[in-house]
């Protein structure tokens, strides 16, 4: 199966040459056509920067210092701005946590959507407008014809996120990168958006990278899951493997910390300590200082990826349940 997106050894660093902050430090994954990949991690794990790096959206002082990003076989790292401009919004779209990052507050939805169509396609204005209207209908906005003339502040938070998704869908992209798109929304609205996203991904065969800290959302949506910690993917594989039989102690720790896994009134089992600052990561495995399975060998060297079938992990002491 040909991957729509293949990321190999991606490194995105911030700060100076002498003291780099390794926000993303050797991330590799791939997404196939029609597949939903959940990219999971806590704040500061580098999951959003990974998403931004794919589209070349990292602002200085951040820079991609190594690795490759292959989109349908085409190298995006170091590609000329003109090439990236033709791909962004057309072949790869991005949805952000805050829809106001996508929407211009002083332009009507119609102006913004028509502009997005015309940026890539040489079509008559009336046709562009019809496409905008159809896209609004597609994401479940009632009476799209009238709503086209509205401004972003006239929409609720959930409706704004739908508009942002409609803009992402205008060119029927092959890949959508969604960065915490439902995190700020209420449960019922989140559910509506997830429902639409799943339906559209199935209908168009789009590949989707869904970046989230919420394991519940990822479980209900994704085909495969990649777990990030301290700038690296520590474990990846099919959603059932990762969530039912995690190999990495960090994934186990995340699952155990969820209130849903403990009985009411019982103490929760948090991961001790907190994630290290990117400038002060421990030697060897970055998770070893918080890990219940760590041994002396974890400090000596960084674990390389171990492959087992469809899944892989970076750990010297993988949990036995993964092998079963």
């Amino acid at each position: 199966m040909v991957a729509v997106l293949q990321v190999e050894g991606l490194q995105t660093w911030f700060g100076t040459k002498d003291a780099p902050v390794r926000a993303v430090d050797g991330v590799s994954f791939s997404v196939a056509r029609g597949e939903i990949l959940g990219l999971v991690g806590e704040s500061g794990s580098g999951k959003s920067i990974t998403g931004f790096s794919i589209l070349g959206l990292v602002d200085p002082p951040g820079r991609v210092v190594g690795g490759r990003v292959l989109f349908q076989g085409q190298e995006l790292v170091g590609a000329p701005p003109e090439t990236l401009r033709r791909i962004r919004g057309k072949k790869i779209a991005m949805i952000f946590q805050d829809p106001m990052m996508t929407l211009n507050p002083v332009l009507s939805i119609e102006t913004q959507m028509v502009e997005a169509v015309l940026a890539h396609d040489d079509t008559p204005r009336a046709e562009a407008r019809a496409r905008a209207r159809d896209a609004l209908g597609l994401v479940g906005i009632p009476s799209p014809e009238e709503r086209l003339g509205a401004y972003p502040h006239q929409f609720s938070g959930g409706m704004r996120q739908r508009v942002a998704i409609a803009i992402a869908l205008l060119h029927k992209p092959d890949l959508i990168i969604a960065d915490e798109p439902t995190t700020a929304l209420d449960v019922t609205i989140q559910s509506q958006i997830l429902f639409e996203v799943r339906r559209l991904a199935d209908a168009f065969g789009m590949a989707l990278v869904w970046i989230s800290h919420d394991l519940g959302v990822v479980a209900s949506l994704a085909d495969r899951v990649a777990v990030m910690y301290a700038g690296r993917i520590v474990e990846s594989g099919g959603v059932d493997d990762i969530l039912d039989r995690p190999a990495h102690p960090y994934t186990r720790g995340l699952l155990d910390a969820l209130p849903a896994t403990a009985r009411r009134g019982e103490r929760l089992r948090p991961i001790p300590g907190m994630a290290p600052a990117p400038t002060a990561r421990p030697s060897g495995c970055a998770f070893r200082t918080r890990c219940f399975a760590a041994g002396p060998d974890c400090a000596a060297a960084e674990p390389e990826p171990t492959r087992a079938g469809e899944r892989q992990w970076r750990c010297f002491h993988p949990l036995a349940e993964a092998a079963a």
Binding site: Q192, G216, A219, S220, L243, L258
Partner: peptide, 11 residues
């Protein structure tokens, strides 16, 4: 309510 126990569920 999303739960880690529900996989690829229908919303």
């Amino acid at each position: 309510l999303p739960s880690v126990k529900d996989r690829r569920r229908d919303f």
